[in-house]
Design a protein around this nucleic acid. Structure first.
Lengths: 259, 259
DNA sequence: TTTCAATATATATTAAGCTATATAGCGATA
DNA sequence: TATCGCTATATAGCTTAATATATATTGAAA
């Protein structure tokens, strides 16, 4: 499992090699031959062959399928597993670069120390975390109002402190995460309800988890899943079931931003 | 700036060397001599000397001060800058390890793909992010109630979904981040106020930022700073000023957890 | 059955980096 | 001024890994 653990662990001394390995896999996918892929990277044929051999041995499934002989002499192509590996590496690599970039931002080169502590890599308990793009930012001295477009097309409004906007360094066009707790999501079957300073998202009830007191309702809003926790009696009063149209309502001051 | 950019960028092929460099610096700090530090790492004297030389040249300030001759033959000790570098490296290294650990959790070894997408390395807009230790977790089917102790000694309560607890994988004793928006913080000068399902934190008004409509009040609660956004009229009604005793009140359902 | 271009495999060469080793220089103290 | 243990510096030798090179093997198709 050496190759995978390297991929996952990126343990420094070998992550450069790892990059070459992924480059080799990509090249194989492109040209369908190990010898030609080795020339592309570039890498000696033996080096490339050894890499592929060790990958095939150490991974739970082979990364390539090799054909020896035949018309054209044979060839090499990636397995499903190998393709997954390349894709996974690319995602991880990108996130890693983001991590390194953040580090370089908080490091003060002149003093050799960190400018401020920063919790990297934090997961938060909020169930609702949707990807959105910032459309407008209006700030006064204390508060700022942001409008963000979800990938479903819905526009959400968030009111956060102006200081938070400055801290995050968000600007129009940025991709951000819209965050809100599931118990700040109200439900309404009145599809024409008019509310001020509220986000109203129309969707379809996808799942209902019942318990004695509270219930969790998952609403599908244009592909995004929004979780709402309401009391059981509220569910009974609304008389909703899976498949019903429903509005998810979130106060804009309950909406946070992640970047 | 090669050494620092390596420290910050951890660009794979050289991060192993980097680790040796930091180990060398630590050893110098400990023993006060380059030759003995080299033996500790272990490293050849010339190798160690070259490292230190290149670091001194590439960094904005020298990392060590060397004394040649004298009783005991001289010695080498870290500069302030060098000490900062070691400390910074340790923080970054730890965060990096956490990052890698997270990656290994979301990577499926069997299929070579990611189990699910995960936003690493996210900053969130909430102003109040306090370090705390989990004391108790009570779960029912939908909701979970968590008690967490701040470093000031105050215990805070959070109600989040049981699913969130499971997702985060938090357990009693874990260090977590308590997160809440500044506009879910209410203020009260009645120090004896009794409230159910509420967090009440007694502190001292540290700063007041005024604007036409809203105000931001920073309350010092046993060393932690809690930001509250309230309306200007509320401030006037409370008649508070810097130095006054005050209660910060946060509904437990407004409190989120980060890990 | 020959051909072809690839895979499969071994060996020699080269390059780089580190180690080992040796020696000169230094300067406060006794 | 002799001593001591460290820094400063150079060079030869070793280790490792990759490259270059050569050659055998494979099997479908002409």
């Amino acid at each position: 499992m050496k190759f995978l653990s390297e991929l996952v662990l990126m343990d420094g001394e070998s992550s450069f090699l790892l990059q070459k390995r992924v480059a080799l896999l990509s090249a194989i996918e492109e040209v369908g031959s190990l010898s030609r892929a080795a020339k592309m990277v570039p890498l000696s044929y033996k080096g490339a062959w050894d890499m592929i051999d060790s990958m095939n041995n150490f991974c739970p499934s082979p990364v390539v399928e090799k054909v020896t002989g035949g018309v054209g002499g044979g060839g090499t192509k990636l397995t499903e597993y190998g393709k997954n590996l390349v894709k996974t590496y690319e995602v991880i690599y990108k996130e890693h670069q983001k991590f390194l970039e953040t580090i370089s931002h908080v490091t003060d080169f002149e003093s050799g120390s960190l400018k401020f502590f920063r919790r990297f890599n934090m997961q938060i308990s909020a169930r609702n975390q949707l990807v959105a793009t910032i459309q407008t930012i209006q700030s006064d001295k204390v508060n700022a109002t942001l409008h963000m477009k979800l990938k479903s097309g819905y526009v959400m409004t968030s009111v956060i402190t102006a200081g938070a906007v400055e801290n995050l360094g968000v600007k129009v066009g940025d991709e951000v995460i819209v965050i809100f707790k599931s118990n700040s999501v109200l439900l309404s079957t009145d599809m024409d309800v008019k509310l001020s300073a509220m986000n109203k998202l129309s969707g379809v009830v996808e799942k209902i988890y019942l318990s004695e007191i509270n219930c969790e309702v998952v609403v599908n809003v244009g592909g995004d899943h929004i979780a709402s926790v309401v009391t059981k009696s509220a569910i009974e009063a609304l008389d909703i079931k899976v498949g019903d149209n429903i509005n998810a309502i979130i106060k804009s001051s309950d909406v946070m931003i992640g970047k």
